[in-house]
Write a protein that binds this DNA or RNA. Structure first.
Lengths: 145, 145
DNA sequence: GTCAATGCAAATCGTTTGCATGAAC
DNA sequence: GTTCATGCAAACGATTTGCATTGAC
């Protein structure tokens, strides 16, 4: 488990540095993603906030604005999954790719150094400066076969 | 270059087999993708048709329906690119992955046997039966750097 | 003649924007 | 007090749907 306090501190620092204002809403959104097991869409983040903290009167527009902001300052990342649109995850998790069961939706995260290395090489060969990548293997998991 | 006649024949066969009707519109949409150099969005396909064949009075809804249909019967594939939404490509092209410039949208296709092999291995290790996969490397291309 | 596919317009979904209000500094 | 961030509602673009009509079989 990551130390979410640290990441929150990081956010405070960034906001101050940019001469912007620190708001509870941005913290809440970041916090949701820090503790999320899954990758969440903007709407899922919104619902999560609503259900966890009924008192909080956050608007969906604010969630979108917070997500854009957090991605811009590199605290979170968005991934385009095949099926249901843009999903977000905290950057404090280490990099990994995804095995996705198309039957039950189970997601297994994995990392393969050799693949990572070869991606670097392909990028170099094509003179690309890689900023991110996403790789998904779709199939049927053991339980569903 | 692929033999587009063959793919069109394939479409005719599938339609007949399913007891559906063969229409000019589906053929036009498939044909656009067969001859497209690029990956196209639904709207780009629509515009292409309009400009090429001004007489044709196709509706955008029909394009969307044709694309869904063609993907369902596995003649085309959609990819979710980071920037501008869902794009389609013909399946008669051989399998490949994508390098995508997040600045100008340029797409370079590549294939790496070693990566393909390792993906197989990862699937096996996790007892997954792979049906498909998608991999995109995002970055800045040479021209945009 | 039957039934699926089409074109059009209206509806819907996810996301963004304008603007008056509220909160951080 | 100033300025940025918020909430709300309206606007927006992409996609889907309802429905009457057309076209394939």
């Amino acid at each position: 488990m990551i130390n979410s306090e640290e990441v929150i501190e990081e956010l405070k620092k960034i906001v101050k540095q940019k001469g912007l204002k620190y708001t509870e809403q941005r913290e809440i959104v970041l916090n949701i993603l820090l503790h999320a097991v899954d990758h969440l869409t903007a709407e899922e983040v919104y619902n999560e906030i609503k259900s966890k903290d009924g008192a909080s009167n956050i608007g969906i527009a604010t969630v979108y604005r917070a997500l854009s902001f957090l991605e811009e300052v590199d605290l979170i990342t968005s991934i385009n999954f095949g099926t249901d649109g843009k999903k977000y995850e905290s950057n404090s998790k280490s990099h990994h790719d995804h095995l996705i069961c198309t039957q039950c939706g189970k997601i297994i995260e994995f990392l393969d150094d050799e693949i990572e290395k070869r991606q670097e090489r392909i990028a170099k060969k094509n003179k690309f400066k890689i900023t991110s990548h996403s790789m998904q293997l779709y199939g049927i998991c053991e339980d569903c076969q």
